[in-house]
Design a protein around this nucleic acid. Structure first.
Lengths: 170, 170
DNA sequence: ATAAAATAGTTGGATGTCCTAATATTGGAT
DNA sequence: ATCCAATATTAGGACATCCAACTATTTTAT
């Protein structure tokens, strides 16, 4: 039973947690807790929508991001390490994602021409086609209706850009 | 090498993606893409900080949330199903989290007094002590310095509350 | 020229999450 | 009484992440 049916009042669990925090004398962290928890929950909401759209196409968000990075790159190809640093994920996560993409023939590995330690990942024609199809699906089914007004959306992007900058993202 | 050292200009990968979106004629989804991607990355940043603080205590964020839910409940106990719906996670994830918490003797399962299908999860004394310790660590090490000013933080919380409401959270 | 250090990537193992499907039990509705 | 819904568990699979260890290669220092 939704809480508003019990209390007659809409009830925001995160705001309730913030009140609990302050009731316990944790004023120094209450707003940070609410901000962090809100971001976690927003990600959960968006991720569920995105993965629901991508699942029928046989890819995950991590793999979609990898493909789009290649799609937008000048040569359609990047070294493994660059992919990891751009997406801010661990080397082994890149290896894992590229393994799966390569098995599906959406990308292919190529030796680096001058540095024989390095591996270049290149998007295939099938990869480009799927990336385009996935993007169109995401645009119409998720990104065009993000559950926020234009103003909120612009403000959200700007605030999170400041957070990402503070965290050393760019 | 950070990009600003190459170009002399700070470079936001999400803003760059937005420009790519618009260059490809995907104006209808460009801002939604930027908003969704920003939320994903913000969650990645915060989750890394939170898990780094919780790891020495032997719990994950999911288990911490479960414990705090019980900590704040009137009797320190809730049915499995209520935990799942409050945290918006799958039933099997609750079973998994409670299994691990119970193995660490931080919570214990009890039969529901009137509904013999249901299981009540109750936080133990050791669980309360750890929950308190974890909260104090999170408050000082993460929540007190969320990488945002007070104004940005309040605005972020408000915007994401509207998103969560639209998504049916409360 | 050679040894040491740094870099690129992979592997294997562990952890953890989520999902589907199946099962057992119980509660509520008709 | 009987059917249908709800509660929780289990099993199996897919996936992402992290860590330590490893190989191969390149760069740096002496």
């Amino acid at each position: 039973m939704p809480d508003e049916q019990r209390t007659g009042l809409p009830y925001d669990p995160i705001d309730e947690a913030r009140r609990q925090w302050e009731a316990h004398g944790w004023e120094d962290g209450s707003h940070g807790m609410a901000a962090v928890t809100s971001v976690m929950r927003a990600q959960q909401i968006y991720m569920a929508r995105v993965e629901a759209v991508l699942r029928p196409l046989g890819i995950t968000f991590a793999r979609y991001e990898t493909m789009m990075l290649l799609y937008f790159s000048r040569r359609g190809a990047l070294p493994m390490g660059v992919i990891g640093s751009r997406l801010q994920v661990h080397q082994t996560s890149v290896t894992n994602a590229v393994d799966r993409l390569e098995a599906a023939e959406l990308v292919k590995r190529t030796p680096h021409p001058s540095d024989r330690r390095a591996t270049i990942v290149e998007i295939t024609e099938a990869g480009r086609i799927l990336a385009l199809k996935a993007t169109e699906a995401l645009n119409t089914e998720v990104f065009a209706h993000p559950g926020l007004g234009q103003g909120d959306m612009a403000e959200l992007i700007a605030i999170l850009a400041r957070l990402r900058r503070e965290a050393g993202d760019f």
